[in-house]
Computed example of a mutant assay.
Amino acid sequence: MSISAILFDLDGTLTDPKLGITRCIQYALSELGYKPPDADELLWCIGPPIQESFSQLLNTSENRLLEEAIALYRLRYSTIGLFENYLYPQIIDILQKIRLAGYQTFVATSKPHIYAKQIIEYFDLSVLFDAVYGSELDGTRTVKSELIKHILITENLAPSTVVMVGDRLHDIIGAKLNHVTAIGVTYGYGTEEELKIHGADLIAHSPEEINKLLVHD
């Protein structure tokens, strides 16, 4: 592979956001008068755009209710939830090695970029990325394929020189729709089966395996 740039998903790939995301969903549902599921029953919500998750949780496509749920979620997430988060082991080490090998690196998350940037800064990762890309608060570019397309155009990257690394089907589908190589990681919130079914080119079971796939001595 003549790869020069790596796009990294955030939740479930660089960090484990379980605590923050599940607590914020539970808070929003409680405020709306619903009995929220236990945290372990909400793990499927980590990865997809939050509107999709609330649409399924509330069994509705009514915009007003979904907007209210998202506003409540963000009320807690923007001040508390985004910091209820931790880096996966080895992440800093493998990012340093990938950078030293000469690759450009970008964050590509369906999370709003204003939150993604705060998380990257919180973990002192800013120096390890050329840029952080995410969605807009109005929902623009929450679909991973649209986000990846935006990054390719903005950074003038040829799809054949780019790899997308992520833990959910959205990352793989988004990469494939843009003719980008996809590495699926199994230490996050997607299964190996999910990743392979949707076309992952390579599978990494740990951050160190990402490094081995990309950096060759």
Rank of each mutant, 00 (worst) to 15 (best):
F123I: 02
D130C: 10
I92S: 05
L137W: 04
N85V: 03
Y133T: 08
E155K: 15
S135W: 04
L100D: 12
H179Q: 13
I172D: 03
I94S: 01
H113E: 15
K149M: 14
V185I: 11
F123C: 03
F129Y: 08
E121L: 09
R74K: 11
M164S: 05
Y189V: 06
L82P: 04
V162T: 07
I70K: 11
G81L: 02
K149E: 11
L95G: 06
Y86V: 14
S78A: 14
E84Q: 11
I94K: 08
D171R: 03
T161L: 11
Q96I: 11
F106Y: 15
L137I: 13
D124M: 12
V132E: 10
L100C: 06
Q118C: 08
G166M: 00
Q96H: 07
L137F: 00
H150R: 09
V163C: 07
L87M: 12
S160F: 01
T186E: 08
V127N: 15
E67L: 09
L100F: 09
Y122K: 12
I70G: 08
E84W: 08
K144V: 05
V132Q: 02
F123N: 13
I148L: 11
G188W: 02
E84T: 14
V180R: 00
L147A: 00
A175V: 04
T105E: 01
K144T: 03
V185K: 00
G166V: 01
L95Q: 04
R168F: 13
N85M: 09
R99T: 11
L128V: 08
Y133F: 15
S160L: 05
E146D: 14
V180I: 08
F83P: 03
G81E: 01
L75T: 14
L72F: 13
Y133H: 13
F123E: 10
I70M: 06
S145T: 11
